[in-house]
Design a protein around this nucleic acid. Sequence first.
DNA 1: CTGAAAGCGCTTACAG
DNA 2: CTGAAAGCGCTTACAG
Lengths: 349, 349
Amino acid sequence: MADRGAKLQSGGAYQRSTIRDVAAQAGVSVTTASRALNGTGRMSDETRERVQQVASELDYRPSSIARGLVQQRSFTLGLLTNDPYGRFTLPVAAGLSSAMADRGVSVFLSTGEYEPERLSLNLRAMEEKRVDGLVITGKRIDRGLPVDLPDLGMPVVYVYASAPEGAVSFVPDDKNAAKAAIRHLLGLGREKIAHITGPHDFRSARLRADGWREALIEDGLEPFGPAIYSAWTEQHGFETARHMIESGERPDAIFCGNDQIARGAIDAFALMGIRVPHDIAIVGFDNWEVFAKATRPPLTTLDMGLPSLGRNAGMALLDLIDGKSVPPGVRETPCELIVRQSCGAQPER
Amino acid sequence: MADRGAKLQSGGAYQRSTIRDVAAQAGVSVTTASRALNGTGRMSDETRERVQQVASELDYRPSSIARGLVQQRSFTLGLLTNDPYGRFTLPVAAGLSSAMADRGVSVFLSTGEYEPERLSLNLRAMEEKRVDGLVITGKRIDRGLPVDLPDLGMPVVYVYASAPEGAVSFVPDDKNAAKAAIRHLLGLGREKIAHITGPHDFRSARLRADGWREALIEDGLEPFGPAIYSAWTEQHGFETARHMIESGERPDAIFCGNDQIARGAIDAFALMGIRVPHDIAIVGFDNWEVFAKATRPPLTTLDMGLPSLGRNAGMALLDLIDGKSVPPGVRETPCELIVRQSCGAQPER
DNA sequence: CTGAAAGCGCTTACAG
DNA sequence: CTGAAAGCGCTTACAG
């Protein structure tokens, strides 16, 4: 009757084998079976191995539900996001999910606008599922939840979102990334470096502009004009780049606040017969490969390491869950400069 | 001591209130409390309301873990994907997740390459979590799991992935979508319609090419040259478009297999001084807005309705879980033509 | 070294 | 209409 450890029920559904089946088959008590399987307690190697052998023959899968009930731990995390179609959430989620998988914890994906109704529905679901902790992520580092998180009685960690005072959060180190980009340009002999970026009310945009400015000043140079803030779009890059050329002195490099802006600028230059990187070098931000690899020439840009951000957040959350103390505050995680052809540097090989 | 229904334990952690707390406080048995909360059984309205009132005062959250244990249902689904950074998974996942949230079921995100080791780790996790069902998705409709799914004893549904014989699966209706695109072009008076698309070994590419060909033939026209298969990249679109212009007769429209190819073609034409849509109309595929809205002019394209695909798959899975019979087979779901400016038609408003 | 028993938080026959 | 009791599948004091 036992077939791969699963018994065919009357309904036709499979009935998994339980620890009782394993214990019975191995001729030990359920207590011993449990200990053998979990590597706890002391018993003869022979016994332990026999139990494990039987478990594997019966294709036994311990119920994480039952275990959760007694241990008051679900081995489960919730990932809250309001960026379901965006490019930030998925890399973060993938990094988190696969790091957690290696530790036996699974993650619930909870998507929806951060608007009070939806949010409280989603939070309630996570509470009822008894997740051990929550990671909250978003579309930008200066927006968090629109409402105060009710006291959920579970640890929470923030990634790529703003966090309340005293919380643990992970964001990319925008400012130093920008400085690295500028130093790269400087190292290639560029000196008139302009900056085109997203809206001024984005903290990321301001931080990147700060990095641009500081790196230049540290090198004894002046920024080439003011940072030009507008939308995070190709159109902004396209029009601003064109305008820059048409009106007076020309920069020899442009640091762009994201890859889309860089893309727009490169396209404008192509149409105007300005050669990248020969006439003007371009650096982007995001390493969104579908853009960064498709520009002509391919784009040198910064990679925020979103999967690592997700992984790090998960690890911190696990520590919190285990009752370890994790220092609160914002962790700024280094970005990586990805060198392609848009600056004239040889890509590393 | 009770504070928002949560008691401060010695350790400092919160202890949620249980159904026993609710029952005690409401002066009824646990049985009655359970029935009152679940809307089952018969009792006076007064009793039911009192229990609900107490539950809300205590901020009671029923444990889906405990319920799962007795009902042998976890109200949980697994979403398996090997496309963690791709643009297909997230819309599908968001559609699935939010539709399921409305029905009280949460979804685990399980990412990783579909390579045997990783896959069996991930599947095992889903089994131990006792998910009620699995949705499997991927990067292309003609690839599924590289190994036969072991008999998991739970229902499985496929989305945007190939499914074994007899399974339930959901894919976009590529062929009819292509026909709709061609008819749109025909309706605008275009007659020499070429087709540039992805690799021939992608079923999607072949289906879209079939639709292109058939729609033309049905209209009494010849396809303009053979379908040109290569990579799903801008570069392919760019080079092929340029080559098309340089070598002889010129089409008056191009149907592109995806938005990236369309983007490449439009860029090539811009550089060659060929006006879109005046000289050549372009249609893309995917409605990947970051491309489709950024081309100059914005791109008319097909939207596969990925979120709906996810939602539909979830609903089918729920039916299967409830023991309802769901006819097996591949459901081809209609795509939607999104009219922008690249064909010369006025966008609908 | 090993096991019987209690219990995690619920639902659901069963009995009144 | 209401409740006492059993039980879902585990883990873990407690006792031997």
